[in-house]
């Protein structure tokens, strides 16, 4: 009996057939749509797409527009602060809850609850809380501290941090739950061994537990980062981009261009730049993460 290896293409035939619709969707909708968008970003498409080439005009205009530059800056400030703070807050909350406290379920539910709200609700709630006339400022002044000022949403310099507060309030719960799941996955023997060796708890967390939680961190990172890049609804609900254009973000710029200014070409150019930014971060990471695995394997 000639033992030829079965053709690789026909192994797991049923699984591959089942995956065909998804592969086709991915190719045509995602890759095709992306390519189409990039091609049309070099045209002067207005309300409707049309193939009238203008070269790099749309990109020149994009980088000459203050609204876009402010959008990028805001995304960078919001993204970095959000990334760092949401991990720190989420992990600390998870570590605290992991101390076998009473009413754990209740507390966990309360902290996770904001995540069940849509960004629109979150945005509106925080717009009210941060409104100087009937929010925090008014309450503190009511206690007698007459000169207290806290109006981030009305101060162009710090308005983006008003958004950050709302984003953190909403996002921390999810990170906490994921971290908690990761912590529960750590074998209790690790803790016992660390205790026997006399390693303090904070050191155990930092040097032993966190490195062991790498998969959880990566999942959380992907969730948090995609949430940051696509931020749009929170801004629309909370500030509408204001005061002035102080809290504009790239996704909102794309929407404004495509559906308010009826300038598809400019919107496509902006979304291509967003894609490029994400690709610059994701591709090196993907190569490091997956490219080396075969050698390690």
């Amino acid at each position: 009996m000639a033992s030829t290896r079965p053709n690789q293409l026909f192994r797991n035939k049923s699984a591959k057939i089942a995956a065909i619709p998804m592969i086709v969707t991915a190719l045509f909708v995602f890759v095709g749509g992306t390519a189409w968008t990039i091609v049309y970003s070099f045209t002067s498409s207005g309300l409707l797409p049309r193939l009238k080439w203008v070269g790099l005009d749309q990109y020149e205009r994009l980088w000459d527009t203050r609204k876009w530059l402010i959008s990028i800056e805001n995304l960078a400030i919001y993204g970095l602060s959000m990334l760092i703070l949401v991990f720190v807050i989420g992990f600390i909350l998870a570590a605290l809850i992991d101390q076998k406290i009473r009413f754990e379920n209740t507390i966990r539910t309360v902290i996770l609850y904001p995540y069940a709200l849509s960004f629109v609700v979150t945005g509106l709630v925080w717009q009210w809380i941060l409104n100087p006339e009937f929010g925090v400022q008014n309450i503190v002044r009511g206690w007698g501290w007459e000169t207290f000022t806290f109006d981030p949403l009305y101060n162009a310099e710090i308005a983006i941090f008003g958004i950050l507060i709302a984003g953190l309030w909403q996002g921390s719960g999810l990170v906490m739950v994921l971290m908690l799941a990761g912590l529960r996955g750590i074998d209790q023997d690790v803790w016992k061994a660390a205790r026997v060796d006399g390693i303090p708890a904070w050191k155990t967390y930092l040097l032993i537990v966190i490195p062991m939680m790498r998969p959880v961190f990566i999942t959380t990172l992907v969730l948090v980062v995609t949430g940051i890049v696509k931020i749009y609804d929170l801004i629309v609900a909370q500030t509408g981009g204001g005061p002035g254009i102080a809290t504009e973000v790239p996704a909102k710029y794309v929407y404004d261009m495509m559906f308010q200014a009826n300038n598809l070409g400019q919107g496509f150019a902006a979304s291509t730049m967003m894609l490029l930014t994400v690709a610059l971060v994701v591709i090196p990471w993907a190569i490091l993460e997956f490219g080396g695995s075969k050698n390690r394997g």
Partner: peptide, 19 residues
Amino acid sequence: LTSDTTNQINTLFTEFFAD
């Protein structure tokens, strides 16, 4: 004016009046 131009003028005055 096209809505593109109108939109740019709106943005300009949003900025101007806020700052």
